[in-house]
Amino acid sequence: MDKFVFFGGKGGVGKTTVSSAFGLKCARAGLRTLIVSTDPAHSTSDVFDQQFDDDPRSVDGIDNLWAMEIDPDDEVQAHLQSVKEEMGEQVSPAIVNEINRQIELAHRTPGAYEAALFDRFIEVMRDADDWDRVVFDTSPTGGTLRLLALPDFLEDWIDRLIDKRETSIDLFEKAAVGEKSARKRAENDPIIARLRERKEKFEFAGRVLKDDAAFFLILNPDELSIRETERAIGQLRDYGLDVDGIVVNKVTPSPDEDETGRGADFLRQRIATEQDRIEEINGSFEQPIMGVIETRVEEVKGSLLDDVAADLDIEVAPEAAA
């Protein structure tokens, strides 16, 4: 199993439950494990009945398990603040207002949320020496997919920006023949330096995502969830990322043989339908089903989490090479 494990899926399918259970399983196997949640609803805190923030904290009563919760909004605000501070040092007060407007605008675009999250992911992956395993509980499908596609897309785009910047600086230098001094110089150009720095970050992320990360999608045994997951797998493949397996969550538990009555009939019919769906999943997906988890009577937490972890058939041991 790769060091970084991502769990994704549509909202409400039970990503937090499954990723927490998998984290627990790894920790029980003796791996120093960190669970990273990006859910603004902070459901990891609910699962372990403990408050987490954006620094890894050890989970009470469980050895080898740590958790952290990243709040994308906080990340965006922190970034906004740091850019503004930087500007205070660089820019004359006369045009600060004009620039401020643009900076605020940039932090209110839809992409800001994902960009901030992605930055934080990269940070976690970079400082992961302390952990044997890092489990990412990602936000719902659409956003996550775009997140994982970012490195390729951005590297390309930054290349083009650097290229353009170099061209324009080269022209400025050529225009400054003789005693005139160039308006801009290539060496120590802060823009090119910054863009290069960015590019290195994305290259790192792209490499880790391709070589040292596993992806699992969670779905429920219903039509909508299956379609959604098919789409997600296709998109991930377009980005050059393979989904390693599927976890079916919220499967209806069967009644005892001798039970009769409306409730039992309903359950049996429901189970028959779900069985068809699971067969469909088995037939139409290349990815193996790594676990079938039944619906519980209440929210999965505490000892229930160990039960769920037992249903997960995902290899825990790190790869020999890693």
Partner: peptide
């Protein structure tokens, strides 16, 4: 591009460059 109403997926990152481009930008 978003300064002219064209949504850009990268404006979050490029905003980091604004402190160094302020006068040019204006």
């Amino acid at each position: 591009a978003d300064a002219f109403g064209i949504p850009s997926p990268v404006s979050y990152y490029t905003s980091e460059l604004l402190p160094y481009l302020a006068e040019d930008f204006e």
